[in-house]
């Protein structure tokens, strides 16, 4: 499959990345080469094959019980005020 520059822009937007225009050309060429190498999968007969999302033999879910977790968000947050993470305003913004 061919990766176009508009595909790349779309994916960069989805991934919330800021990438300078000058670097996009390099990424486009490298990613195309990587995607081309994935043609190896086209040779496989995958009809009737179920996907494997995990090799874990069991999923061990613990009981949903409150426990004290010794973490103070204010100590690790980039900006913390009045019991909340402070971020740039989102109202009146399309974002």
């Amino acid at each position: 499959m061919t990766l176009t520059s508009s595909d790349l822009d779309h994916v960069i937007e989805l991934a919330r990345l800021d990438i300078p225009e000058t670097e996009k050309t390099l990424y486009l060429a490298q990613l195309q080469k990587i995607l081309d190498s994935m043609a190896a999968l086209d040779k496989l007969d995958l009809s009737g094959v179920e996907p494997t999302f995990s090799t874990s033999q069991s999923v061990n879910l613990r009981p949903d019980i409150d426990r004290v977790f010794d973490v103070t968000p204010s100590e690790i947050a980039p900006l913390w005020e009045e019991n909340g993470f402070q971020v740039p305003k989102i109202l009146d913004e399309e974002a």
């Binding site: 991934a15 919330r16 990345l17 800021d18 968000p73 690790i76 947050a77 980039p78 900006l79 993470f85 971020v87 740039p88 305003k89 989102i90 913004e93 399309e94 974002a95």
Partner: peptide, 21 residues
Amino acid sequence: VRYGHRAQGVENLAQMYKQTR
């Protein structure tokens, strides 16, 4: 938002995500 580097001088949340990353 919660930890790690945060870009400075941004105007809105989307710009903060993108520039931080």
